[in-house]
Amino acid sequence: MGNFDVMLVFDHWDRYMAGFINTIQISIIALIGSFILGAIIAIFRIAPLKPLNWFGTAYVEVIRNIPLLIVVFFFYLGLPSLGIELDGFVSGTLGLTVYTASFIAEAIRAGIQAIPTGQTEAARATGLSYLQTMTHIILPQAIKIVLPAIGNQFINLVKNSSILAVVAGMDLMYYADLINSDTFLPLTVYTFVALFYLVLTVPLSYAVLYMEKCFNIADN
C-alpha cells in the first residue's frame, strides 16, 4: 500500500477545486433547466389536447429508455451536423437537462394527478383558464408532493455529471483523469474524487430523507 499519498490532494488542490466547482455548476444549471422542461412536459402530458399528450408521452418514453451517454453524444457529436457548435461543458449540461427532465416530468405528473380533480373543476368554475388553474392551484400543491423526488433527481444529477469526463466537459471526473495522468497514483486520485462527490451527495440525500419525513407527517 505504498501507493497512497495523502498530500496529493494539496499538491493538486487547484485542479480538484476547478472540477468540484464545475460539477456543482453543471448540476445546478441542469437541475433548474430540467425542472422547467420537466414541468412543461408534464403539463403537455395531461393537457386536454391530444397532440400535446402524444408529444409529452413520446418524449418521456424515448428519453427515459436510452442511456444518458447517448443523449450527451447526440448533443456533442450530433448537433455539429446541423451547424450548432457546443463545447463539452455546454452539450454535456444540455444532455443532462434533457435526460433528467423526463424523470422530473413523470414525478410532476404523478404529483399533479395526486390532487383531486374536484379542485380543477372548482377552479375552472370560478372562471380561471386552464393555464391559470395549473399555475395557481395545481402546480403549487403538486410541487410539495414532488419535491423529494426532485431532490433525488438532484443527487442523480451530481453523480451523472461525471459523464462529462468523456466529452472533455471540465467536471470533477475529467480533472481527476488529468491529475492521474501526471501522478500515476490512481488509488489516491480517485479516492479523493470519491470523497468530493460524497461531500455533495450525502448531505443532499439526508435533506431528501428529511423532506420525505416532513411531508409525510404533514399529510397524516
Binding site: 451530481v158 469526463a165 480517485y190 460524497l198
Partner: peptide, 16 residues
Amino acid sequence: IRNLPLLLIIFFMKIV
C-alpha cells in the same frame, strides 16, 4: 456506494 457516481465505481473496479 449509492451516493457515488457509477462511472467512478466502474473505473475503480478496473483500474484502482
